[in-house]
């Protein structure tokens, strides 16, 4: 069992959360010229690193807030958690 420190609710088991993927991916800005490559990068391409990974989780069976979690993809150690609005 992973235990994730929700910045709103405290330490909770992973079963209360739903995963949301890589948090570093940025949607191309609207009202700008956007190339196919920009969309490709945003929709499909992922670094999927071995090691530290900043990712989105939603505390779906708790406060329902999206949060950011810095986790090691090899050891599953969780280092820091952030509110979605916080800068990392």
């Amino acid at each position: 069992m992973l235990y994730i420190l929700c910045p709103h609710c405290g330490l909770r088991p992973q079963t209360e959360f739903s995963y949301g993927g890589d948090a570093t991916v940025k949607r191309p800005e609207l009202n700008k010229e956007i190339s196919d490559q920009d969309w490709d990068n945003f929709v499909y391409l992922r670094k999927s690193p071995r090691g530290k990974h900043l990712e989105l989780w939603q505390h779906i069976s708790g406060c329902r807030q999206w949060i950011k979690v810095e986790r090691d993809t090899l050891t599953h150690e969780i280092f820091t958690t952030y509110k979605a609005s916080e800068n990392t």
Binding site: M1, P13, E55, R71, T73, L74, H76
Partner: peptide, 13 residues
């Protein structure tokens, strides 16, 4: 298991 991982071992939930 539902999250990016390179650990070749799983989790009980």
């Amino acid at each position: 298991d539902g999250y990016n991982s390179y650990a070749q071992r799983g989790n009980l939930p």
